[in-house]
Design a protein around this nucleic acid. Sequence first.
DNA 1: GACTAACGTTTTTTT
DNA 2: AACGTTAGTC
Length: 667
Amino acid sequence: MASSFSFESLNNAQRQAVASLDGPVMILAGAGTGKTRTVTCRIAHMLEKRIPPDQILAVTFTNKAANEMRERIGGMVSKKAASEMTVCTFHSLCVRLLRGGIDKLGYKKNFSICSHSDQVGIMKQLLVRKGGTDEKVKPETVLGAISNCKNKGQDPANLEDDYFASLAVAYQNELRAQNAVDFDDLLLFAEQILREHADVREVFRQRFTRVTVDEFQDTNALQMQLLQQLVGPPYHVCVVGDDDQSIYGWRGAEVANILEFERFFDNPTIIRLEENYRSTHAVLHTANSLIKHNAGRREKVLRSTRRGGDNVRLVAMPGDDEEAEFIAEEILAGRSAVGRTWEDFAVLFRTNGQSRKLELALRERKIPYRMVGAQSFYDRREVRDVLAYAQLLAAPDADVPLLRILNAPNRGIGQSTAVLATDWSREHHESVWQALCDPNFTATLGAKTRGAIESFVALIAGAKNRIDLAGENPADVLHGLVTEIEYREWIERGCKTENEKQQRGEGIQMVIDSLRAHVAKGKKLQTFLDDSALASDREDDDLEKKQGATLITLHASKGLEFPFVFLVGLEEGFLPHSRSIVEGTKDEERRLLYVGITRAQDQLTMTYCTKRVKWGQETGCQPSSFIGELDDEYLDHTTYDDILGAEASPDDLDSFFGNLKGMLDGI
DNA sequence: GACTAACGTTTTTTT
DNA sequence: AACGTTAGTC
């Protein structure tokens, strides 16, 4: 089949990338240089060269990226070929591997995957149980240390701090007892199996002879180790990324994977995509002038294909109120131009806390806006509860989901009983579910509690049998179960508003519908649970599905582009963030600003304030030290007053009298 | 076991 | 300022 791309439509560097199919290849793809297009063309080219599609593996970091890539490839090659390729995240690849071979590590193949909140729950318990030290340690701190350790490919039992190390050991034992793994374990265990079992390794290396890794700057040390196990001679591996856009170092990403790629894969072909199709020359020049202040990078100089354009503006603001007002007014005015939509405008900020005043200013002017990444679907209580019930139907021995819904809705099995059951299960080296089923245990309880437990056990066991023995549709069973226990009525009782009630109801329904859809596609309950555990949870939150101007953190903005970008809060302590200065990661903050600047297609406005309300307290601000690093050739330094002009607008008078009144009131 | 009051915390976020 | 957590009360 002839693929639907032509070499003529690519620039020289892109063409070289597409043509270089053999051996290790590293594509350094600067912002806006047609990375995805190049990668998908390269894969289409593989098919042209008669490489069997089922040997092609493309690994991404997020589900969203995987879906996008699958779609882009699907538009370029035959349906059949596209369906035979594997395009997935690191984690889902590892789940597939482990579902087949985790028994080599002593786990059962029906292991469950702990979510973040599951992890916190387990660690909280351990801290209570092992809380020998009086110092207050947060579960997140310990889990963070464990995660960092695993992401480096090390055993958390060797953590420096003895207390942390003992907690790590207890945590791992707890997971093992529950036949559960956390997100990091998926990678860790998969790597271990590939490393220790040559037969499995060979199967995988023959299965996938062509491996592509996207967003390579976001990979951590463990993922690199995994990749090395996955790819054997003759190392047909292609990594794509941009070290200048590496902004996830704080969660383990290793820029070294790009910077020292030669150390991991010998003699790679290195291709630089430097032709930028997104931004004006002014924007790109400003971005380049900033990023060159970073030491130790793979040097790239992005060239714009778009000459001219408006200068970048840097506006000094009196305070964050004025900043928000200014931006809202600018959006309002900009949008009135012919052909402009609200979606053309984006406001980028360092921390979520900075969005509040912006939201208020937009709302006042009835400007529709969309916020990215507020509350995630899978963190919603009703969603987690219903999923917990679904988990029990697959594997009741999983303690975390069991304890979660043991008394939700209230059925007379309270905290004290839960503790007794947990203790008993630990003493007898069994799961909590087994304890609840054990007459010897229930005999130790009062008659009322015993009755409650017996009906709970009957409820879950009955539902499970309807799936396992009677072969009923799991979605029907789950729906029946949730209805029977009047879960919805229970959760609605706790709602304060009608809106909340409706949202919770929808959440319940969405889980059941989603399960039904999975079953309809022929997938098993277990697969549904895996997908849910690994879901990027923002499907619902998809930018495209919402309308309005975009309010977004710099981190979340990576990969996006907007005609008009406002970048707020260029103040020392915010950007670079004060914590980065303490931790010596100012380079990453510089990259963060670089990412922000390169989001702009046509026009970029950056602002900084003299004062800002922080944690309910007004604090003075200094301009960011990054401002001095920006080249002035295409950069206009202005102030709020300059732009408003000499004539006092009614707004100004209002605020003038407002201030005056405030001063008088203070006397 | 549910409710209230005081308290502490507050970068970024995916799997 | 606003949120979640925890301790204390009924």
